[in-house]
Write a protein that binds this DNA or RNA. Structure first.
Lengths: 208, 208
DNA sequence: AGAATAAAGTTTACAACGTAAACATAATAA
DNA sequence: TTATTATGTTTACGTTGTAAACTTTATTCT
C-alpha cells in the first residue's frame, strides 16, 4: 500500500493495474468497469470518483501501455548506437514482437483509441510531446535515412512512412491472426525489413 | 419484397442490409441486435430465428463487405491487363482508398472479425476459397513478381508480404487517424508504392 | 381436404453493463 | 471543533444479449 489514505488506499492506481490484467485476460469485449471495481473490492460506482467514465480509464491505460511499449523499443538500442541500420532494424523487430506478445496492447494504442492525429507532410512531422513514443522511432529512423537523403525532408518522410507502414501492417496481420507463419515470424519480419533496406540502399547507389 | 413468405418476407436479408447501415452510422460500438430488429419493425428476439447470436450476424455482414471490397479491387484492373506493375499499383490504391472511404469496413474484415488464419510459408500460400479476396490480390502480385523471381517462391512470398504489409499498415494508420496528411493521401500512397517497386526493381538490376 | 409439423415471430424474463442521483463517511482545512 | 471536500455506497434506470415459453403462419403428410 502506498498511501493508505481514505477508505481504499489508492484506487485509481489499482484500477489501472487491474484494468490491464482484465484487458489481457478477456480482451476489450470483457473489459468492464464493474468487473474492475469488484476486482478492487469496491462498489461498482466507486470508479466514477477517479474517472469520468469507462473511456477515461481506458485512455489512461492506453498511456500506460504506451510507455511500456516505448521502453521495449528502447531496448532495441543496446549495443548498436553507432550502427544506424542495425539500430533501426532492432527497433522494428521490437515493435513487432512486443505487439505479438501483447496483442491487446496493439488494439489500445493503434485501433480502439483513436485520435492521435499525427500530422505527416513533407514539411513537418509533428508529434505531441518531446519524449513521445513516435519521437523515439522518428529519431532512430532519421539517423538512418539522413545518411542517404541529407536534408531532403520530403524523401525522408516518405522513407520513414513506408517502413513504418510495413511493420505496422505486418504487426496487424500477425496480431489479428490474418496470417500465420509456419516458421518463426520474427525471422520473416527480419528478412522483410532487411530486404526493404537493401532495396533502398541499392537503388540509392544507382542514382549516384 | 422478394418472397412475402411468413410474417415478414425476408428478415434475414433485411437484417444484413440494416446492419450494414447501422454499422456505418454508429460504428461497432453502436451495433446492436435490438436496434437492428427495431429497424426491421420486428421484435427484439426475432433475429434469433436467423442468426445464432449477434456475432453470427456480424460475421455474415463481414462476408458481404468482403465481396464489396473484392469488387472494388477488381475495378483497379481496367485498362492495364497487360501492364503488371500498373495493375498492381492500381489495386493497391483501390485497397487504400476503399478502406479510407469506408473506415468501418476495415474493422470488419481485418480487425474485429478474426480467424482468417491464412497460412504463409515459402512453400505454400493457402487461401480459403478459389474466388477469395486474397486470391485476387495474390494473382495480381504474382504476375508482377514472377517477372523477377521466376519460380523462387520463397522470395516471391517475401515480396508479396512486404508490399501487402505496407499498404495494410498505411491503411490502418489512415483509418484510425493515427496520421493524417496535409495534402492528398492517395498521392502519398502512390509515391510510397512506386518507390517500393522502384527500389525493388533497381536492386534487382544490380544483382544481374 | 384436414391434421400434424415445422418455421417465424412475440412476450416475458433475467443477468450484465454504463451511468446518474442521493446519501454516508472519512480526511483535511478553517 | 466545525465546515468542507474527497471518497465510497446504495438505489435506480435504461440498454444490451440471450434463453424459455408461447403464438401464429406456412408446409407437409395422410
Amino acid at each position: 500500500m502506498k498511501k493508505q489514505l481514505y477508505h481504499h488506499g489508492d484506487l485509481r492506481a489499482e484500477m489501472i493495474k487491474k484494468g490491464i490484467q482484465l484487458l489481457n485476460k478477456e480482451g476489450y469485449e470483457g473489459f468492464s468497469l464493474r468487473k474492475i471495481a469488484s476486482m478492487c473490492n469496491v462498489s461498482h460506482t466507486a470508479p466514477y470518483r477517479h474517472f469520468k467514465n469507462k473511456n477515461e480509464l481506458y485512455k489512461t491505460i492506453g498511456q500506460e501501455i504506451h510507455s511500456k511499449f516505448k521502453e521495449a523499443m528502447l531496448d532495441g538500442r543496446e549495443g548498436c548506437e553507432s550502427d544506424p541500420r542495425k539500430h533501426l532494424l532492432n527497433m522494428c523487430k521490437q515493435y513487432v514482437s512486443f505487439m505479438v506478445n501483447n496483442p491487446e496492447y496493439f488494439r489500445y494504442i493503434f485501433i480502439t483509441v483513436h485520435g492521435h492525429e499525427i500530422s505527416v507532410s513533407p514539411e513537418d512531422i509533428r508529434f505531441e510531446e518531446e519524449g513521445h513514443l513516435f519521437n523515439v522511432s522518428k529519431k532512430c529512423a532519421k539517423e538512418y535515412f539522413e545518411q542517404f537523403y541529407g536534408n531532403d525532408s520530403a524523401d525522408w518522410v516518405l522513407g520513414f512512412l513506408a517502413l513504418w507502414s510495413m511493420i505496422h501492417g505486418l504487426t496487424l496481420l500477425l496480431v489479428t491472426r490474418t496470417i500465420h507463419f509456419q516458421g518463426d515470424y520474427l525471422a520473416y519480419a527480419e528478412k522483410m525489413i532487411e530486404a526493404h533496406l537493401d532495396h533502398f540502399e541499392n537503388s540509392f547507389l544507382i542514382k549516384l
